[in-house]
Amino acid sequence: MIRKMKSRLFGWVLAFVLCFSFSGSKVEAASLARTSANTSVSGWAYSTQSGHMGVKTSNYTFDSSTTYNTYSTYLSNGIALWGTNISMGYTSQSTAKGLIIASDAASDATASTLVVSVDSNGHRTKFTITIYSVNFLGSYTNVNGRNRTIAHEIGHAYGLGDISQSSNIMYGSYSTLKQVTTQDIWGMKVVTHQHNHSSSTTGTYSQLNASYHNVVCSSCYGIYKQDHSYVNGICSKCGRAQ
């Protein structure tokens, strides 16, 4: 009885600390500097939520010890699918960037990601991944599929959005066939700043407005809004007249 009470007390304290930690964080508007969000040009897209991770490294914790016991292996395996492109580790500390929540709700989802807060640079500081236990662990899924679901949600947490190509990890439906592709990795390199856009970015140009043209980066295929380079009143890159 005493042990049960202690266990309950621990659970309540943990829940309180986590809830306190994850509430009240301010969500601020942010984006990759002058990079057009929500645009998929070659197999990857930006997240539709605020900001992006901005670095390779982050960490996560669980909402309870049962969630840890049930899902920690899937978390490790899902993260491993991204290879060395991210570095994400478990911590028992409530200060972790990511909180993994298990839900028993009736849902048609396997998992979902919510960005809780971003800093003034548009870099994500808190996020939650909710795993819908009935579907995630159900007979329809298998270990490979579950690992892929976690990799998909990690992609969201870092700043990637859903795409329509069913072979890519960021495809929006559960599948045992999708995997981390070159395109997914390019997206990840952008949202972790391992690949940056600047005035020297080259690629395919298209006119946008008087201030900028769009350039589809020849490396990552992301779209970047770049200043015009006027020479004799004509932009040397997109051809727009001044």
């Binding site: 997240s47 539709t48 939520q49 028993d104 048609d108 989802a109 396997t110 998992a111 979902s112 990601t113 919510l114 579907n135 329809y140 679901t149 998909h152 949600e153 969201h156 959005g161 859903d162 929006g172 439906s173 559960y174 599948s175």
Partner: peptide, 27 residues
């Protein structure tokens, strides 16, 4: 089944957007 307590809440003025992986419809 696990007992639940249900109560009404006021909707938020701005919906909180999440990104979700769905079960395929043919499930």
């Amino acid at each position: 089944k696990i007992p639940v307590v249900v109560h009404s809440v006021t909707p938020l003025a701005a919906p909180v957007r999440t990104e979700t992986e769905w079960l395929p419809a043919d499930f």
